[in-house]
Design a protein around this nucleic acid. Structure first.
Lengths: 322, 322
DNA sequence: GTCCCGGGTGACAACGTTGTCCCCCTCACC
DNA sequence: GGTGAGGGGGACAACGTTGTCACCCGGGAC
């Protein structure tokens, strides 16, 4: 910038004015400056601008796994909003590890991101209070913050969706409906279990429930165990996309009515098509980002809690008779 | 930092020394400083550090679409390497738009990213020369840079993979093998067409080739046209994952031998399983990131061009008889 | 007692911007 | 011709760090 000023025969500040399109520069002077900028290939140093302005125009996104279709769709939607607002997106995957999550948040905050969007892994987010007080807003998506923290949150109707799927299977005559869920310490898994349980009512049987981190081996073992029961399940409700796919592989063609939480590509092309409760990851990301920018533009209302609707997509697998 | 210095009764520089773990600070002093840091909740301002140091410890990633499974897997691998190196990842999707791509690169460079990893959309990357000369290395992944630019590049064996799939179909007795590819202006699409064509040899028939941006309607139309020929195709080779899925939907159960470029989740669960040529997006991302960091650590060799192998995964669809 | 050495510490400048304030010049008006 | 207004431009400080250099003081060698 100094060089440009020298080349154009003006002061530093005048170059700054031209670069920022500020008024009060003679057109001829501005032209001279622009010409010098082009000639020298100058581009403003955003680091310095940021240092001066105090705002980085950067948003941090912490998700579980960028490579998971659900989160990558969410991330893409966040990205679009963020870039539409003239900001950039720093993204990082926590791999469902609270320690790593905290480390990432710390790093983001040291970089002075303007705001955070989080799919939290842990249950203790008290460490965020300090940042929030320091003026870095955060929005939680997919899962709420731990106790003691109340910020903007976007969730889907986990319990309602699970009940919807369960009732769908019930309506097709099933009474023995198994539920495979993720680790119950994960908010969404617990809520879906709750929805399933309340829809099952007196038909609920603990032996038909298995909740743990999805892995091919454990899913297979859980299914085998249930199928060996006196009154084995005739239908299966899987608590997230990964579990649905894992269960499909474990079933290996054995006929079983099936409904899954989360839609996934190709669910319609399998035989039979897989009935799912679909949520909208892109919508979730978009809304979370919009809430964040509302905060950034100074909104000071109490935290908002948005619950997105889900919808049942019957495709055949949930309509098999017992 | 000034406040911390004041609170601990030391000079600014001493706080800086403690924060950076520099030697030459009396343990007792250091302890006092650390205590003040904790009490005031101080965290170093990276923007200022960056301004001073000239390095941002940030890498920019420009890909086509973060929500696409192929690119999100690549992005995740890049992210892991980048974070492993103590840097952060800025990511953005070009949506296959050269103008947007250029805009994103410009923005990244204005932020002084240390390096760029790109899946290029356009064919003219001369605009990068300036940045490269300014010391911002770039690595291209999946597709090479346009003419006149030579930098580290990681590709997969597109032509070889396409030939592999084509020969697989030929080996199963097919002579009329159609090829659905993406827009031929996309490097990978052109190379795959080349591989298909050379494997087909004298059997090549232009009427069995359709190259354009995948869309359900156009794929269906192309298939209808080919199936209406005197000698319709008995097998189909699709040029990327999206096309494979779109074609599967368009075929709607009509029997047809099929092989596709790119593996995708559930390919094994369809009936029949979909035979694919699999590449390794995570490996591609990892290697691209590693090449970048090699440059960042001062390596000055001529640009490297890495070609990753692909492998055929027969699953049934490619083994159907004519 | 003087000198030197070196560990511990601090003052200052610089990174590249931008906000604030001030200056100068021109022109119109009295 | 003097004066005021206002547009165009510049000097300077500040953002929060860190590299450079200089300082102070205690202890050991002569």
């Amino acid at each position: 910038m100094k060089d440009v000023a020298l080349a154009a025969g003006v002061a530093l500040k005048t170059v700054s004015r031209v670069v920022n399109g500020e008024p009060g520069v003679h057109p001829a002077t501005a032209e001279r400056v622009r010409e010098a900028i082009d000639r020298l290939g100058y581009s403003r140093n955003e680091s310095a601008r940021v240092l001066r302005a105090g705002r980085t125009s950067t948003v941090g996104l912490v998700i579980e796994d960028l490579a998971d279709p659900f989160y990558s769709a969410l991330g893409r939607a966040v990205e679009d909003v963020v870039i539409g607002q003239g900001c950039l997106l720093l993204s990082a995957s926590s791999s469902e590890d609270p320690v790593r999550e905290r480390e990432l948040v710390r790093t983001f905050c040291a970089r002075r991101v303007d705001g955070l969007i989080m799919v939290p892994a842990g249950h203790d987010h008290s460490y965020l209070c300090q940042e929030l007080e320091a003026g870095t807003p955060a929005v939680f998506a997919d899962r709420p913050p731990g106790p003691g923290l109340d910020v903007d949150t976007v969730l889907c109707d986990n319990a309602g969706g699970a009940a919807l799927a369960t009732r769908h299977l019930l309506a097709h005559g099933h009474r023995r409906i198994a539920f495979l869920g993720d680790d119950p310490s994960i908010f969404t898994a617990a809520r879906r279990l709750h929805g399933y349980r309340s829809a099952m009512g007196h038909l609920y049987d603990e032996r038909l429930v298995a909740m743990r981190t999805p892995a091919p081996g454990s899913v297979r073992a859980d299914l085998e165990r249930m199928l060996a029961l006196d009154r084995p399940p005739t239908a299966l409700f899987t608590g997230n996309g990964r579990l649905t796919v894992t269960a499909l592989r474990a079933l290996a063609g054995r006929p079983m009515a099936l409904a899954g939480f989360d839609d996934f590509e190709l669910a319609d092309l399998l035989t039979p098509g897989v009935t799912v409760v679909a949520q909208d990851p892109a919508g979730m990301g978009r809304i979370a980002a919009e809430l964040l920018f509302r905060r950034l533009s100074g909104e000071n209302d109490p935290p908002r809690h948005v619950t997105l609707p889900v919808r049942l997509i019957p495709r055949g697998s949930g309509e098999l008779p017992p």
